[in-house]
């Protein structure tokens, strides 16, 4: 029973990260109808930037800020310099270009930092706080929940309450009309990519210290897991991404807790397969848009 409680909290903590990363995928999907397969690699690049800054300054928090800033910049750069020029004749084009980015970014990181795992620290203890003799969750888990909750809140405010959010939604839904109404649609697209990339960077900062450490491939599995979460929620739906992320986090926590952690990737595959074949609309999406 203790173990179940522990696994539940651990799963929710991981789920919060998957939710954030899935949100980033949904952001770009809504803005550009692209699944950004390079998001994991982009997020890792931001985490490496944080590593360097923390090394230089000795401060976790300056590094943390650097990760978010780098995330914004990488996102904007990828949209401005690459994605904007991809032809739409074939829907596979964007996927293939994003995969090219994965190869490129990971290789550049490997050249700069090497392919070994670098140590990655947390700003708070990861030892679980015991409540009535039962280890529940750690200070770091609380930090993760807080960060993701703040993120969700800020994004919700941005999109529903600000004029920039209104512009971003309009540009995604009706680009041509939005231009006629004075919206800088290209700028909104860049902003969407930048935001999503920063959100991905945040997720990477939160999750990497809880796994093996920093490595060019550190987010590969997180990407697929979060993609699964986003698909469960329906790629179009931010609340779906959050719920999907939490659900996937829980399921994987139980799987790895009771069956062994090596089974996790197989469980992700099985989960994705089941969702794709059984619930083609996602749980939260109004449309059946699997045939994108």
């Amino acid at each position: 029973m203790d173990r179940f409680v522990f696994l539940t909290f651990d799963g929710l903590s991981n789920g919060a990260v998957y939710a954030a990363f899935a949100l980033a995928l949904v952001l770009i999907w809504r803005a550009a109808r692209v699944v950004n397969f390079a998001q994991g690699a982009m997020a890792v690049a931001a985490a490496y930037a944080a590593y360097s800054v923390t090394q230089a300054t000795g401060s976790y928090w300056i590094g943390f800020a650097a990760a978010l800033g780098t995330g914004l910049m990488i996102g904007a750069l990828v949209e401005r310099a690459v994605m904007r020029f991809v032809g739409h004749a074939n829907p596979l084009n964007e996927v293939i270009v994003a995969l090219g980015l994965v190869l490129f970014i990971q290789a550049v990181l490997g050249m700069l930092y090497g392919n070994e795992f670098l140590p990655s620290h947390t700003p708070f203890s990861r030892n679980a706080i015991e409540v009535g003799g039962v280890p529940l969750l750690s200070r770091y888990d609380l930090f993760v929940f807080g960060a993701v909750a703040a993120l969700v809140l800020l994004l919700a405010l941005l999109f529903t309450k600000t004029s920039t959010g209104l512009r971003m939604r309009a540009a995604a839904f009706a680009p041509e009309v939005s231009r006629l109404l004075g919206v800088n649609v290209g700028g909104m697209l860049t902003l969407g990519w930048a935001l999503a990339s920063a959100v991905g960077a945040l997720a990477a900062m939160l999750v990497i210290p809880t796994e093996l450490g920093l490595n060019p491939h550190a987010m590969d599995l997180v990407f697929v897991t979060s993609f699964t979460a986003a698909v469960i929620g329906g790629l179009d739906s931010p609340p779906g991404a959050v719920t999907g992320g939490m659900a996937v986090g829980l399921i994987l926590s139980y799987v790895s807790g009771y069956l062994g952690s090596s089974v996790t990737p197989i469980a992700v595959l099985a989960l994705l397969l089941i969702v794709l074949l059984v619930r083609p609309g996602g749980l939260f999406s109004a449309t059946v848009a699997r045939q994108a």
């Binding site: 829907p91 996927v95 994705l272 397969l273 794709l276």
Partner: peptide
């Protein structure tokens, strides 16, 4: 039964 990004994601998994 899958298209584009969904198929890519599944085969990636």
């Amino acid at each position: 039964r899958l298209r584009g990004p969904y198929l890519a994601g599944l085969t990636l998994a």
